[in-house]
Amino acid sequence: MAKIVSIHSFHGGTGKSNTAANLAALMALAGKRVGIVDADVQSPDIHVLFNLEEDEFDKSITDYLCGKCAIEEAAYDCSRALQLDGEAAVASAGLYLVPSSIRAGDIARVLCEGYDVNLLSDGLRHLARCQNLDYLLVVTPPGLSGETLVSITISDVLVVILRPDRQDYQGTAVTVDVARKLEVPRLLVVVNKVLPRYDLKAVGQAVARTYDAEVAGVLPLSEDVIGLASGGIFALRYPDHPLTQRYRDIAAKLMAV
């Protein structure tokens, strides 16, 4: 049965989308069948990272949640991204993206109506079964809105991303506590955008101590990520980059679940 992994951060711009896309790509490269759902309906962006043009998709998670389509209709095969750099993907591997709608009307509608736990949960399970997925990564909206809580509820693993920034500390603490109340089976913390001159290990230890949680990775702020300007998946573009190695370590931890 597919493992559902929610990728969450209390604040926007923390690096959820980038981290999720990289992890999904690396897991697929490792031979897994992976789905990635952009449930951050307020700021849809993962399709950009996968170079899925806006006119290339007309169905989205939003459509599914509004009952306008079946979830598998909104799942776009992105395996081609894996072959971009000539790295032969494992034959059985797969990468499917369920994008979020960029149409303002759809966004507003989902935002005000909210969505049902069962609807999201059933949809994800159905998609996992349809595509025979091993992992389903769900990128949640920031904050602790109903959508996020639903996402956490149905997750096997919750990855909480924070920056070493006071904006993120308190909110992350609340998220961690709430997730524990929801008895999420595994909670991992990822620290992103850490100034490279910091001792990354010490940062990881400080965060682990503070939240009494496992830190799955500490990712430095990287000029190369900024340089890529969301023009692709970093780990595919720079397979030998130290940051990619760090993404790979996190992916390995997820796949060990």
Binding site: L144, A173, V174, V178, Y198, A206
Partner: peptide, 25 residues
């Protein structure tokens, strides 16, 4: 630098947190 990392000691307002968690839960 070490001091800076130590300054990174993450401070969390426990009472505020308890209140925020309670509001949700």
């Amino acid at each position: 630098l070490k001091q800076q990392v130590e300054e990174l000691r993450i401070e969390i307002d426990q009472t505020k947190k308890a209140k925020q968690v309670a509001e949700i839960t």
